[in-house]
């Protein structure tokens, strides 16, 4: 449906480089990356607001790289929703339909409003709506023109936590109702996991890895991706077929490779205990994050981060300077 080939664009302080991916019909593709990675620039380039410096963009096999936005049938919802402030909710939703001189404008607007739960707001001006309501209007306005693809830029970043999770559930419902294809950019793992059929990791203007959410999260391609996905412990090691040596310790591994490797371990997978474990370590510091706590360990000269529940720390009386046992639930080779 949508296909990008080596798309590059340099614009103001933002940059995207050699972006390549494909989105299939009815697929929900989430681009995950930190702020400043060029996610918005990428969406604006797909929407036709910017023409790429190089590379091609195809819609249903047709080259749309040079087409103006109004000829692409791509709907774009910017982060601030960009509702037209001088028009009512009704007029906002009807905007695209009026341009197309559609003959069932009223019916379409009312049906969309009904499904999106904004029927009671149709006469209101956007400024008088809450963030969640504005979001719904923006989605209704975009869906009204039956775009081939919907581009969403951080759609939940301005919303409260409760509204956010409710809207995410609803988006799934609306997808079943209207069967749309979407490219959604965000920095939130939660959104990516909850909504995505496939995700792409975007770092420093490049799309580094794409795949099913589980695959990407469990098999980061390199250290950069691993670190972004929360693998805070990345070590260089040496594999000899029977195990992997990192610093002074050896991890048992069945992997039949040998030579230099990189090992990535999520803090959640580091188990700290006073009673038993595989390796010995010393507690360097404990940082409370509320219900969870982050522990920095020193293990044979390796600095290791562990995440555990605060209650466990209290229960076992773990303090800075203590000697403890550490075991690893799992680790990944990069």
């Amino acid at each position: 449906m949508l296909k990008l080939e080596k798309v590059s664009k340099d614009w103001k302080e933002f940059k995207i480089k050699d972006i390549e991916f494909e989105v299939k019909r009815n697929e929900y593709f989430v681009i995950l990356g930190p702020s400043g990675a060029g996610k918005t620039l990428l969406l604006e380039t797909i929407a036709g607001i910017h023409i790429p410096d190089s590379g091609r963009i195809y819609m249903d096999g047709v080259d749309v790289t040079e087409l103006p936005p109004e000829k692409r049938e791509i709907a774009y919802i910017p982060q601030n929703y960009a509702l037209f402030p001088h028009m009512s909710v009704y007029e906002n939703i009807a905007f695209g339909l009026r341009i197309r001189k559609a003959d069932d404008i009223d019916e379409t607007v009312r049906r969309l409003a009904e499904v999106l739960g904004i029927s009671h707001l149709l006469h209101r001006k956007p400024k008088t709506l809450s963030g969640g309501e504005q979001q719904r209007v923006a989605i209704a306005r975009a869906l009204a023109v039956q775009p081939k693809i919907l581009l969403l830029d951080e759609p939940f970043s301005n919303l409260d936590v409760q509204i956010r999770s409710k809207l995410m559930e609803e988006i799934k419902r609306w997808r079943r109702e209207f069967e749309f294809t979407a490219v959604h950019v965000t920095h939130s793992f939660e959104e990516a996991f909850c909504l995505a059929d496939r995700i792409g990791i975007m770092l420093n203007g490049r799309l580094v890895q794409t795949g099913k959410p589980d695959d990407v999260f469990l098999k980061p391609k390199n250290e950069e991706v691993a670190r972004f996905l929360g693998y805070e412990n990345v070590f260089e090691g040496y594999a000899d077929g029977s195990g992997i040596k990192i610093g002074g310790i050896t991890l048992n591994s069945e992997v039949a490779i040998s030579g230099k490797v990189k090992v990535a371990i999520r803090p959640e997978d580091v188990i700290v205990s006073k009673r038993d474990g595989k390796f010995e370590a010393k507690i360097e510091s404990i940082e409370s994050l509320g219900f969870a706590s982050k522990i920095t360990l020193s293990m044979n000269g390796l600095k290791l981060k562990a995440l555990t529940t605060t209650s466990k720390i209290v229960e076992e009386g773990i303090k800075e300077g203590d000697r403890v046992y550490v075991s690893l639930r799992c680790f990944n080779l990069l």
Binding site: G48, E70, R72, I74, N80, A82, F84, H86, F95, P147
Partner: peptide, 24 residues
């Protein structure tokens, strides 16, 4: 962004000017 959105919804540059930019 208002102008950008109007364009993606199908409004030409000129139409965007007269329906969005100018009234605002």
């Amino acid at each position: 962004n208002l102008e950008h959105v109007a364009r993606t919804l199908g409004a030409s540059k000129l139409r965007t000017f007269f329906t969005i930019s100018l009234p605002l």
